[in-house]
Design a protein around this nucleic acid. Sequence first.
RNA 1: GCGAGAGUGGCGGAACCGGCAGACGCGCGAGACUUAGGAUCUCGUGGGAAACCGUGGGGGUUCAAGUCCCCCCUCUCGCACCA
Length: 875
Amino acid sequence: MSRPYEHKAVEARWQAYWEGARTFQSAEDASRPKYYCLEMFPYPSGRIHMGHVRNYAIGDVVARYKRMRGFNVLHPMGWDSFGLPAENAAIERGVHPQKWTKENIAYMRSQLRRMGLSYDWTREVTTCEPDYYKWNQWFFIKMYEKGLAYRKRSSVNWCPSCETVLANEQVEEGQCWRCDAVVIQKELEQWFFKITHYAEELLQGLTTLTGWPDRVLAMQRNWIGKSLGVEVDFPLAEPKADLPAIRIFTTRQDTIFGGTFMSVAPESPLVERLIEGRPQAASVREFVARVSRQEKAVRIAADREKEGVFTGAYAVNPFTKARIPIWVANFVLYEYGTGAIMAVPAHDQRDFDFAKQYGIPIRLVIQNPAGTLAEDRLDGAYEEQEAAGRLVNSDRFSGLPVPEAKTKIAAYVEEQGLGRRTVNYRLRDWGVSRQRYWGTPIPMIYCPACGVVPVPERDLPVELPKDVPFTGKGSSPLARAESFVQAACPKCRGPAKRETDTMDTFVDSSWYFLRYCSPQADRQPVDPAASAYWMAVDQYIGGIEHAVLHLLYARFFTKVTRDLGLTRADEPFLNLLTQGMVTKETYRCATHGWLIPTDLLGSEGEGWRCATCQGPVQKGRVEKMSKSKKNIVDPERLIETFGADTARLFSLFAAPPEKDLEWSDSGVEGASRFLGRIWRLLGDLHPQAGGPASTGEPTPRVADLRRLTHRTIKKVTDDIERDFQFNTAIAALMEFVNGLYKFAAERQADPSGSPSGAAAAEAAALREAAEALVLLLAPFAPHVAEELWEALGHPPSVAQQPWPSYDPALVASERLTIPIQVNGKLRSKIEVPADSTEEHVLALAQQDTKLSEWLQGKPPRKVIYVEKKLVNFVV
RNA sequence: GCGAGAGUGGCGGAACCGGCAGACGCGCGAGACUUAGGAUCUCGUGGGAAACCGUGGGGGUUCAAGUCCCCCCUCUCGCACCA
C-alpha cells in the first residue's frame, strides 16, 4: 500500500469494474425513493471542454451522494446531436454529417468514461438517430392535430448569399456569420408551435419552482412578458365600411385623454388601407420600404432615432373626441399588441420624442404631486405609474390617482362598448422551421388536391436521406433531393411533395429527459409508467445560457406531453442549478491579437512579450474560456497528467458551483497533492490493523480524533445538503486529513499510549476515521476512494455503501473557548467546560487577569452573555 | 432604462440566525528529511514598531455589523422602443 499513487492504472481499473458490475444501471423500484439527477446533455462538437468537466463533475457528486443516501438514482447521459456544425463540416471538409457526428460521439463518450462519471449508459439517447427523431415527428403530428402546430408567413433573417434562413444567434452584427453578407428580413411560410397557448400556465408555473434561481425565474417572467391593459377602438375620421376604426392595445388607459396622435407599425396591412388614394401614399410606401430593409437588430435598438411619416388619415380620440393624425412610426412593433398604438407624448417617452420631432401637440393629463408640470415646459414624458400622479384634463376622471384611474377607465371602456380589458404577452409562438439538412424532417406532405397532410404515424420516421449534395449554397439540401421530395399523398395517393424544412434542434432537447425514463419505448416517446416513476427531474444542472430558450421549451413540451397523457409532471425540473462559467486570464499582443500562454516570453514579474514580434503583451481580463480568446485548457491533457479525480476535485473545490470558476494551474496541483496526501496517509497508518469496538480506556487523543471524525461527517453532509457547497465540504475533508496527520505524528512521538488498552482504542478510532474519510471522499474522487476502500479490506464497491452517519453526542465538545470582549472588542479568551452555567462563565471571565487593564477595577455597566458563544463587558 | 448578482489578505475563496473576520487551498517565508529537491513532512503567514487599523465609499441601528437600514461608487450578467 505504500506504492505510489498511479492514477492511470487506478482509474482504468475502477472504470472497468463499474462497467462490468453494472454498478450504475438503474431500474424502477417502487420500494425505494427515486432521485432523478440530470446534467444538460452536450452537443458532440468533437471533444469535451472544461465547462463539461465542471457540469458533469457537479452532477456526478450529486448522483453518487444520493445513491449512498439510499435513493434509487437515475443518472443518464446522451447527445444533442443535430445541428449546424455537422453540416458545416460536410460543406467545408466533405465529411458526411452523420459520420462526423458519430465519430465525435464515440470520442466524447470515451472522454466522459475516463472522467469516471456514474452514468447508466444503457439509457443513452442520441437525438440524430431515427429511433429518437421519429418521436419528434410524432409530437409534431400530435401537436398539429391539436392545433398546437400551424403554418404562417413570418419575417426571418435571410442571408442572400447563402440563400438560407439564419437563426438569430447566427447573425453577427447584422452579417452572416459564415459569409459576412448583410442579413435581410424576409417573409417566409414557416411552421410554428403554439407555445402562447400555455403562456399563462408557463408564467404561473414559475411560482411553484422554488428550487430555481431567482434570476432564471425573472428572466422567464420577463420573456413571457405579461401585461394587463385594454384594447380600445379609435374610430377613423373617415370610416370605411370594412375599416371603421383602428384597434389599439394600451396598459396606460389612464392617459387616454392625452392621446394626441396614433402610430401604426410599418408592416401593418392597415398602412395600405389608410393611404389609399391619398397624396401621402408614395412617401409612406417609400418610408415603409426603407424601414423594412433595415436589419432587425438595428431597427429594434432602443436608442434608435424615432422616425415616422404622416399617413394623411385621421382618427377620433373616443374620450376627447379630438381629431388626431395617424402616423406610421418605426418603433411600433407589428407583432406586439394590435400593431397600432395611441400616442400620449406627455406620458410616454417614445411618443414624447416623436411628437417633439414632428411638432405634434402635447396634452398633459397627469400632474405630479408638486403640481409643477406644464404642457409647454415639459422636457420629457412624465411616466408616473403610482398614486403620486393624479389625473388632470380628463373630464370626470380628473383628480383620480393613477392606479385608480386605470381601473375606472378600463371599466368605463367596457361599459361604453369602446373596447375591453385584455392581457398581452410578449411571448411569441415558436418558429421551428429550418432550411437545413441536419435536423428532424418535418413530417408533412403537400398535396395539390388535399392540401397539407401529416405523414401517418405508421410511416414514421420520415428518415433523412443520406445521399444529398452539401454545397452551402442554394436551397436546403433536402429540397434538392428529388427522391425525398416526391411522395404520395397519404390521403388520395396522388403525387405530392414533402416538406423539406427540418425542425429547430431545440425541439430535440425539449423532451430528452422524458425519453431517458424509457429509452427503448417503441410505441410511444415515453412510457407513462416509467415517467410516472422517474419524473420530474429532481436536480437539473447546466449553464445559465439556457435560462430562457431551452428551459422554456422544455417546460412547454412537458405540458404538451402531460396533456397527451404520457406524463403526470406539470414541470420537468424541480431544482435547477446553473453552474458558473470556467474562466481564465487572457493575453493580448497589439499586433498578433490574443495569445496562448506558449506564445508568451518573459514572466509575470518583468512583464510578458509576444513570442512572434517581441512586442509588449497586455495581460487581459479573466474571461470565459473560448477559442477566440485563446484561453482554453483542454481537459484531456488535464486528465492525462493528473487523472480524473484531480480534475473533478479541482473543479469542485476552487469555487462554489453557481459561481464562476477561475482556472489555476497551481490549484490543480493542490487538488492532486491532497489526493496524494490521503493515499500516503492511509498507506502509512495501516488502519486495517485496527480491531472492532474497543474496550480500552479512551484517551484524550482518541476522544479528539473521534470528535474530528464525527464533526467532519456532519460538516460534509450539511454542506452537500445545503445547496451543494462542495468547496467547503472538500475543505472539511482537508482539515480532517490534516488532523489525521497530526494524530499520526503524536502517536509516533508517544507510541505506547499511557494507560493499558489505549493502543487498541486508538486503532479502532483510527479505523473509524479512515473509513469515514474514504466514504466521504467517494462522491468527489471515486477512483481513489474505491482503491482505498479495497485497501481497508472491503469488497467493492464503495459507491454502493451507505453514507456514514455521525453521533451528535460525539460532535459536541467537552470544553468551549469563550471569547471575552470589552466594549465589543476582543480582549481575552477563556476555556470552560461545555456545560458551564452563566454564573460560572461570568465569574471566570471577571477573574481573567488579561481584562484588568480594560476593566480598570470598575464594575461593568452591562454584561452581555451569549450562551456558549461569548461574553461582552460594557464599561 | 428595467431586472438579477457581485465587491472580503498577494490570489481562489470561508464566515449558516447580528456574536472570535480571513476556514480550506494557492503563493510566500523558515525548518526537517535528503547527494539533490520543483517530492514529502512540520511551523509561520491581513496591515502596522506599537496604540491600533482592517470586509468598495459615506451615514445609521446595536453591548456587538462582512452580515440589518439609508445614500453613493464600481463591476458582471440578462432583457431592452413590448405601448
